[in-house]
């Protein structure tokens, strides 16, 4: 309404005619901005459409059984997604369990404990960790971390728990080579730490200093300030940061491909090799054709849906917490 009356007023005034050419430029600029923004929407829809189109034959052939079958046999053209889905979820959850406490620790160190002169270099170090390409993490995981992990963790732990109920299955390595689902989880944890830590740090920094100072002023210790003042204030953003880390861990490809062992079998032990959706696509896509290609596209479709759900949940959590 307001815009309309403005237009009428401008059209009647002589100034409007003089300004006409620039108004056209204005409109073109606005259209270009809108077009670019809509392109984001189109690309995302295109990704979903392309992957769903490619995976459709596999969904059609195997039906809902595709999700629950653990078969992956190229010779017999039998494909199922279960092993890859479980590998993806387990490695991502392990990454969160290991990575989130470390991230929060780093954020607390940077905002509360670090002496002023060291803040910048320490923060820079953590942020550089985020810039290291994932393939480098893969090489580090395979050539540096895995041998150490096999020698100092897998072998002793396997010897210790052998024969014990539950733990004996969960933490027993049949072949202690260092690669496996847990190794992938640890590498993923290291990769998500800088993201979660730097967002959390930014949020903690934004909390008004007065709040912190008054808590310290009534005699709170650093732990109490963090636990009762800072964390409740920033909880919403911390959840958002963790969800972002989860999304990244679910879809991470190259690092996982190096260290997860790429085996298609369901194992109860997190020391054993497995595979994730992304690692399987990376390994097999270039040599695949026919139904295998469709099955890989279908896997991609499942990964898209899982990631999408995680991010939507993150948004809903954030919104609800904001209202509360």
């Amino acid at each position: 309404m307001v815009a309309l009356t403005e237009n009428v007023a401008l059209a009647t005034s002589p100034a409007a005619t003089r300004r006409a050419p620039s108004r056209l430029g204005d409109r073109i600029f606005r259209a270009a901005a809108l077009g670019s923004a809509l392109l984001v929407l189109v690309v995302l829809a295109g990704i979903l459409a392309a992957i769903a189109y490619g995976g459709w034959p596999a969904f059609q052939t195997f039906g809902p059984g595709f999700l629950t079958s653990s078969a992956w046999n190229v010779g017999r053209e039998e494909y199922g997604a279960l092993v890859a889905i479980i590998g993806t979820l387990v490695s991502a959850v392990l990454a969160l369990v290991i990575g989130v406490p470390i991230s929060l620790g780093i954020a607390i160190y940077l905002t509360q404990l670090c002496p002023g002169w060291a803040r910048r270099p320490v923060a820079m170090t953590i942020e550089l960790l985020a810039a290291v390409p994932s393939i480098i993490y893969g090489m580090w995981g395979l050539f540096v971390f895995a041998p150490l992990f096999a020698r100092f963790v897998q072998v002793p732990v396997s010897n210790l728990v052998e024969g014990m109920p539950i733990v004996g299955t969960l933490l027993y390595a049949q072949v202690p080579s260092g690669v496996g689902v847990l190794t992938a989880g640890i590498i993923l944890a290291i990769m998500i730490v800088p993201f979660v830590a730097s967002i959390t740090r930014d949020m903690l920094d934004q909390i008004p200093t007065v709040l912190r100072e008054s808590a310290y002023g009534i005699g709170c210790t650093t732990w109490e300030v963090v636990r009762h003042v800072l964390v409740p204030q920033a909880s919403v953003s911390i959840i958002g940061a963790i969800m972002l880390g989860l999304g990244r861990a679910l879809g991470e490809t190259m690092a996982v491909t190096f260290v997860i062992g790429n085996a298609n079998r369901l194992s109860a032990s997190i020391f054993d090799p497995g595979s994730t959706i992304a690692s399987r696509i990376a390994n097999e896509f270039n040599e695949a054709d026919g139904m295998q290609l469709n099955a890989l596209m279908a896997l991609g479709c499942i990964l898209f849906v899982i990631t999408f759900i995680v991010l939507i949940v993150a948004r809903l959590l954030v919104r609800r917490a904001k209202v509360a």
Partner: peptide, 24 residues
Amino acid sequence: LIRFLNDILLSAPSILIGLFVYTL
């Protein structure tokens, strides 16, 4: 909506973008 979808695209697994451009 676009802001929300941009955030999703920001954290979308890069391998899926590879599959998309392969098809496209």
